[in-house]
Amino acid sequence: MYVAAKGGEEAIAAAHTWLAEARRGDRSLPAMSTAQIAEQLALAVARVMSEGSLYDIDLAALAVQQARGDLIEAIFLIRAYRTTLPRLGSSRPIDTGAMICERRVSATFKDIPGGQVLGPTFDYTHRLVDFALAAGDEAAAAKIAETAPQTRSRVSDHLGREGLLRDEPRSDATPPDLTRTPLELPAERPLRLQALARADEGFLLGLAYSTQRGYGRTHAFVGELRIGTVQVAVEIPELGFAIDFAEIVVTECETVNQFTGSRTEPAQFTRGYGLVMGRCERKSISMSLVDRALQWQELGEDNVGAPAQDAEFVLMHSDNIQATGFLEHIKLPHYVDFQAELQLIRRLRREATEAQMEAAE
């Protein structure tokens, strides 16, 4: 027999207490500080900032700690906190061409102006578990030769000067702010890029992989991937000019894609674009591939029915907070709904049994 569970506020309070105890873990071990999380789990913190749409390293680290490492829960916390903040103004577009690069690689040209800068990367590691870390042997890491980061010209600028890369259409219109107004379809590319920038990394990765497997007719090369520091500036009306007020780390990816041209345009390459707060290169590459797939209509290409070409499918399902809310609500009480369906099933089975008995007679 099914009965309603009882407990109410007392049970919820007990669950909160248990959660706090589970978060702390074994008290014989030292507690992890938010500073440790920010420094040693920097990529997790970067993802929380990116998908939470709020650049605050300490706050993101605190959210990771509070969420016990559940990054989507941490992103939820950051989004919720963000809604409480006043809007003091709007910054000018950041100039990624002036980025102070700590990492900058290109898969299209070996010898690029300014050179390849590998930076800290997993790309060339053996992917073997390093048990020296568990033993606390940090001296095993070789000392690297430090070089001063510097600005470097974009690879796409060199292709553009030859007319080999399609020019990006420019508009002075201010795009809608996705953090303050709901997403509406159809969405122009600036709005799509906003949605992709805070989309779930895993979802974007799966879509990007699908385009590489043929679901979207795009064959991309990483024209340039760069990670570094950029200045954020804001216009001060009383002063009549802009001032730099912050430095943030961003990851930018431009992919170069095949494009055959048309009757009105010569054969040239097109690009996909990804820009993400923090060090999130897998996310930025995925974003650029999906961005390119979504441009099929603007470029006059055929829609082959690939998931990554469907703007409604991509944009409405890429937000992990919306997805989490809708998915996890089904674990909350649905006693009345289930009882109604249970009674319906019982009645249908009873009627079917009675019909069989009548037919047998």
Rank of each mutant, 00 (worst) to 15 (best):
C101S: 10
Q66T: 14
H329S: 13
T255L: 08
R349C: 08
G160F: 08
V234L: 06
L193G: 00
L165F: 11
R282I: 02
S50A: 08
M32C: 11
A46W: 02
P149Y: 07
Q356F: 04
A14S: 14
R170S: 01
E265T: 14
F131P: 01
L289C: 13
G136Y: 10
V276N: 00
W296M: 08
L19S: 14
L332F: 15
R346K: 12
P169I: 02
Y335S: 07
R198P: 01
A195N: 01
E247A: 04
D111E: 11
S153T: 13
D157S: 08
M277N: 00
L128R: 15
E328F: 13
Y335H: 10
D310V: 05
A340V: 12
V117F: 04
D56A: 04
T125N: 14
Y273E: 04
V232K: 05
A98N: 04
A60R: 05
A311R: 10
Q116C: 04
R346C: 11
A46R: 02
V314F: 11
I78T: 03
D291A: 00
T121Y: 10
Y55E: 01
T96F: 00
Q66N: 13
T96E: 01
F203Q: 09
A38T: 11
L294T: 04
Q194N: 01
G97H: 09
G300L: 04
Q65S: 15
M49C: 01
A13T: 15
R127G: 07
V234Y: 02
F269A: 14
A140S: 10
S153E: 14
I37D: 07
R166D: 12
G202E: 11
I57L: 05
E351L: 11
R79M: 01
M1E: 12
V129Q: 15
K110N: 05
T255S: 07
V314K: 10
S106K: 06
I321S: 00
R154E: 09
L196P: 00
E224Q: 13
F131M: 13
D157A: 10
A132W: 12
E238H: 11
T181D: 01
G119D: 09
G136E: 12
R292N: 14
L165P: 06
Y124V: 13
P113Y: 05
A187V: 08
G89V: 02
A233P: 00
V250C: 03
D123V: 13
R92L: 08
S28P: 08
Q322M: 06
P307D: 15
K143Q: 15
F122Q: 13
P307Y: 14
V256S: 07
F245D: 08
A195H: 01
V290K: 10
Q343V: 10
I243R: 11
S171F: 01
H126L: 14
R180Q: 05
A4G: 06
E298T: 07
A38M: 09
Q356L: 07
G119K: 14
T151Y: 07
L62Y: 14
S156K: 04
L348V: 06
G325K: 03
R189V: 05
V276K: 00
Q356M: 07
A20P: 12
T121W: 10
L225S: 06
Q309V: 15
V249R: 10
